[in-house]
């Protein structure tokens, strides 16, 4: 099972990334846990300078941009 984390303090772009992740996971039928990380001190543990950021199994896959559901599907496939 994949562990997916969305890093962001709760702005509209962070929420959009969350929705795109949920859509991608649903479309692929992938087993995954999706977690929103909103506390700034928890976000900083990933050493990112920009949010929203997408983390899959502990690895930051993107930062500072909202990936589309299609981009996320390619990443997870």
């Amino acid at each position: 099972m994949k562990k997916i984390q969305i890093l962001g303090t709760g702005c509209p772009k962070c929420k959009l990334l969350m929705a795109n992740v949920e859509a991608a996971v649903k479309a692929l039928g992938t087993e995954a846990t999706i977690e929103k990380v909103e506390k700034i001190q928890d976000i900083m543990k990933f050493a990112v300078m920009t949010t929203p950021a997408l983390v899959v199994d502990g690895q930051v896959k993107s930062a500072g941009k909202v990936l589309s559901a299609d981009d996320i599907k390619k990443m997870l496939a």
Binding site: F46, A47, V48, M49, T50, A53, Q59, V60, K61, S62, A63, G64, K65
Partner: peptide, 23 residues
């Protein structure tokens, strides 16, 4: 600007790599 960790680039720290791509 913002100083960032060159060692993180050398160490390929994923958060630093991805943030640098979006600079």
């Amino acid at each position: 600007g913002r100083m960032y960790c060159l060692a993180g680039i050398g160490g390929r720290v994923s958060g630093i790599m991805e943030s640098t791509k979006s600079a």
